[in-house]
C-alpha cells in the first residue's frame, strides 16, 4: 500500500519537475513546481514526518511560490524565446557523460539495495512528530536556529533595500530610453 502511494507521489513529483523545466511560460513552470512541492509533502508523510510535510506546504507552496507567482504576474513575464543551441558539437559528448553517470548511479543504488545493512521501516516511529522536532530544535540545535533567524533578518533588510531603490517601473523605462538615445547619438557621431 505504502509502495503504491510512494510510486504515485514519485510519478507526480518527477512529472511535474520535468514539466517545469520543459515549459517555456514561467507561470506554467511555477504551477508545475507547486505540484512538485505538494507531491514532496506527500512523500514526507510516507516517511512518517508529518511536521516537515506541513511546513513544506506552508513555506514553499504557501509563501515562496505565492511570491514567485506574484512577481510573474506583476512583471507580466513573457514566454522564453527558443534559441539555437550553441556548442552543438559537444552534445554527443554530453549524452555520453550523462549515460556514464547514470550507469554509475544505477550501479551504486543496486549495491545499496543489496547491502548488509537494511534499516527498519519508519512508519511507527515518533521522530517526525511536532514534539520531537521542537525539542531538537530548541535544545541541541538552538545556535543554528538563532543563526537562521539572523539570516532571515538580513534577508528582510536586503529585500527592502533592493526593492526601494527606484520607486516605479517608469524610472527604469526612462533610463533605458535615455541610454538608447545616447547610444544612437554616439553611433551617429
Amino acid at each position: 500500500m505504502t509502495i503504491l502511494i510512494f510510486l504515485l507521489l514519485a510519478a507526480l513529483t518527477i512529472g511535474c519537475a520535468v514539466a517545469m523545466v520543459a515549459q517555456r511560460n514561467p507561470l506554467y513552470s511555477a504551477i508545475a513546481l507547486i505540484g512538485v512541492f505538494l507531491g514532496m509533502a506527500g512523500i514526507y508523510v510516507t516517511l512518517a514526518a508529518p511536521f516537515i510535510a506541513a511546513i513544506q506546504v506552508i513555506v514553499y507552496a504557501g509563501a515562496i511560490m505565492v511570491l514567485v507567482v506574484f512577481v510573474i504576474m506583476l512583471l507580466n513575464v513573457e514566454e522564453e524565446v527558443r534559441r539555437p543551441i550553441r556548442l552543438r558539437r559537444l552534445v554527443p559528448l554530453g549524452v555520453l557523460l550523462a549515460a556514464i553517470f547514470f550507469a554509475e548511479a544505477a550501479f551504486i543504488i543496486y549495491f545499496v539495495e543489496t547491502s548488509a545493512y537494511n534499516p527498519p521501516p519508519a512508519t511507527q516511529s515518533n521522530v517526525g512528530l511536532t514534539a520531537s522536532v521542537g525539542t531538537g530544535l530548541f535544545t541541541k540545535y538552538l545556535l543554528p536556529f538563532e543563526i537562521t533567524s539572523l539570516l532571515i533578518l538580513m534577508a528582510i533588510v536586503g529585500a527592502i533595500t533592493l526593492a526601494r531603490r527606484v520607486s516605479t517601473l517608469e524610472g527604469g523605462r526612462t533610463r533605458l530610453r535615455a541610454t538608447e538615445e545616447t547610444r544612437s547619438q554616439t553611433s551617429a557621431d
Binding site: L27, I31, I34, L38, A41, P50, F51, A53, A54, I55, V57, I58, A61, G62, A63, V66, V69, F70, M73, L129, T130
Partner: peptide, 23 residues
Amino acid sequence: DIALLYVLAVTSIGVYGIALAGW
C-alpha cells in the same frame, strides 16, 4: 498530531485559486 498546521497549510493553497483566476 499536526491538525492546526494542516489547516494553515491547506488554506495557504487557496490563494492560488484567486491569483490564477485573475491572471
